[in-house]
Amino acid sequence: MSIRIALVGLGKISIDQHIPSIAEDRDFYLVAGVSPNSRTDGLAVYPDLGAALSAEDIDAVAVNTPPQLRFDIAREALLAGKHVLLEKPPAGSLSALAELERIARGSGLSLYTGWHSQHAPAVFPARAWLTGKNIREVRMQWCENVREWHPGQRWIWEPGGLGVFDPGINALSILTRILPDSLVLTAARLDVPANCATPIAAALEGRVGNAGQFEATLDFLKEGEQIWSIEVVTDVGTMSLAMGGAELSIAGSRQNIGPSREYPSIYRRFAALVGRGESEVDAAPLALAADAFLIGRQRQVAEFVE
Rank of each mutant, 00 (worst) to 15 (best):
L100T: 08
R127T: 05
A171K: 00
L286M: 13
P167S: 03
Q298P: 02
M239T: 11
E223Y: 02
L69H: 13
T176V: 13
R102P: 08
L241H: 09
G106W: 08
A290F: 06
F270L: 07
I3V: 14
D191E: 12
A272N: 13
Q300H: 03
Y267T: 00
G212Y: 10
G245A: 09
D191S: 05
E225N: 11
I135Q: 08
S107C: 04
L172P: 11
P167I: 09
L111C: 11
R105W: 01
V208R: 01
P66V: 06
G132V: 03
M1K: 03
D235S: 10
E223Q: 09
E280V: 00
Y29V: 12
T40I: 15
R136E: 15
A292Q: 05
D16A: 13
P66N: 12
K88H: 14
G161I: 06
R268Q: 15
G277P: 10
A290D: 11
A251N: 15
L248F: 11
A211T: 14
A96I: 00
E262D: 07
A96W: 03
E76F: 05
R189T: 15
C143L: 10
N145E: 14
L79I: 08
W142Y: 14
R269Y: 09
R177A: 15
R189E: 15
I178W: 09
D57G: 01
V61E: 08
I230H: 06
W129G: 12
D41L: 04
F71M: 03
E76M: 12
A96N: 13
A122G: 09
I227E: 14
I174G: 02
I19F: 11
P264F: 06
F220I: 01
V123Q: 05
V138T: 06
A283P: 02
S229C: 06
G163D: 04
P259I: 07
I200M: 13
V34C: 03
S21C: 01
L185P: 09
R139S: 14
A211Y: 05
A80W: 02
A60D: 11
F293A: 09
L10E: 12
G114A: 15
E223F: 06
I5P: 08
I169D: 02
D219C: 12
E56V: 02
A194R: 11
L7M: 13
G114Q: 01
T217N: 03
Y112E: 01
D57P: 00
A272I: 00
T217P: 00
P121N: 10
L10P: 10
R75P: 04
I295M: 07
T131I: 00
P180E: 06
S54N: 11
I257K: 02
E24P: 00
L79H: 10
R154L: 12
T40L: 14
N134Q: 13
N145C: 10
S229A: 15
G277D: 11
A216P: 07
Q298F: 01
S265W: 05
I3R: 03
R268E: 14
W115H: 08
P199H: 07
E205M: 09
E56W: 02
D59N: 13
S95E: 15
P125F: 09
S117V: 00
G168C: 07
T186V: 04
V8Y: 14
R136Y: 13
I250P: 07
S279H: 04
S110G: 10
I5Y: 10
C143W: 01
G275I: 05
I169A: 14
